[in-house]
Design a protein around this nucleic acid. Structure first.
Lengths: 224, 224
DNA sequence: GTTATCAATATTGTCAACAATTCAGTCGAC
DNA sequence: GTCGACTGAATTGTTGACAATATTGATAAC
């Protein structure tokens, strides 16, 4: 018998994760009904599995379930999006602080390297690379901070934001000021300046929140 | 047909909530196995319900489930308890800030009234009342801040902490310094001082975290 | 035309039986 | 005695059938 399990079966693969991805990707739209039998068939699993997955996503806040009336993709209101962005700000501020306190020399080198990649991506107007390096930088800070609890929460918050984020990223010149903000964060963390790191991260995410708010305004006025 | 539903049936009553309470109350101990059939019987529901509830609590982080090996009550390590306390600090800091920005005159009166009750409880050494007013104060700040997202997260964080909290509360003279800290928070919020409110809340919860850490140390040295 | 009533359908909730897996202990070989 | 294979029990995972509830559409009454 093999010591290593036979390459985790592709079938069940955690249905909740697959549904989560479908929702964040927009394949399942807000308020769309999630019919157990349908999902069971299209994912090739039993209804009981779908049921459990929906219960988990409900707990996570991605879907809402009403007794005897089934589940829908939860629509995040505009006000709620701002709430989420603010909560994220608070948590990532903490993580930046901790990262500044804990970063090793190797960690600092990594951060600087990512920042460099980010600068190159922007110079070349490579938005995909920018997005990637952006995620890498925040991820590295999370890793350095080493607060698993906060990381888990942050992950679900980001999941909720993804559906709206594209608006902000696409704003002109956002990436350039974003680079400056990221630079300040990296600088403070590498200098071991906890207060500065938290402040810089807050400023960065505060800008994000304000842009989000404004783009929501714009969309509303634009008759979206 | 009645417009109001016929007084929600006491039977299902959301099994997840009942399990959650049993865990926080310590009726279900850390690492204890949660056997579906047993739970189904003792709660008088079907195994499918238990299964869904366990999936939700898993998502919430209160239990861990391993494939084919069932679920157990998740044991929070000491390091993790400190992590949780820090994350809580970050979020409640945000809430205090928001509360300072949003509090109406009526809100301020309410906060001051709760603080007064708290002072009386301490003067009379009524620990139960102190605990109650303590929860009321934090709850009122949450309500005023009006960030549902953060509130939800905070609630689950507190759920995790409850199992350890008693150690800190029982420390001598903790309630007196706690009263001072709460006073500073209320003062800042009522003055509309956002920075001050956040700082005061942080200081309060930082003290809590440090006491938690110390009591954990003590327990370990004491051969617990 | 609008509303109320009812049947038909779609969907969720419940349940029990069965299959698959893990776990505990026994037995035998060495 | 120790290790390993084996058997039986305990437990989780899966499945299908059925009951309960909600939704839809049609029909009738006004």
């Amino acid at each position: 018998m093999p010591v290593v399990r036979p390459a985790s079966p592709p079938e069940p693969l955690d249905i909740a994760a697959r549904l989560r991805e479908a929702i964040t990707r927009g394949q399942l739209m807000p308020n769309e009904r999630l019919i157990e039998a349908e999902l069971a068939q299209s994912y090739g699993v039993n209804r009981a599995n779908i049921r459990m997955a929906l219960a988990m996503l409900d707990q996570e806040g991605l879907v809402v379930r009403e007794p005897n009336r089934g589940a829908r993709v939860r629509a995040v209101s505009e006000a709620e999006a701002v709430e989420i962005a603010e909560t994220r700000l608070a948590i990532e501020g903490l993580l930046a602080r901790r990262a500044a306190e804990r970063a090793t020399p190797a960690d600092r080198r990594t951060l600087r390297a990512i920042e460099k990649d980010m600068r190159r991506a922007i110079e070349q107007s490579d938005y995909a690379a920018f997005s990637r390096t952006n995620a890498a930088l925040h991820g590295e800070i999370q890793r350095i901070a080493g607060n698993e609890t906060a990381n888990r929460i942050l992950k679900t918050l980001k999941t909720h934001l993804v559906r709206l984020q594209y608006r902000v990223i696409m704003l002109p010149d956002r990436s350039k000021s974003s680079l400056k903000e990221h630079g300040a964060i990296v600088e403070a963390i590498c200098a071991g300046d906890a207060d500065g790191a938290e402040a810089a991260m807050r400023q960065h995410l505060l800008n994000f929140r304000n842009l989000l708010r404004r783009s929501i305004e714009a969309a509303r006025l634009g008759g979206f």
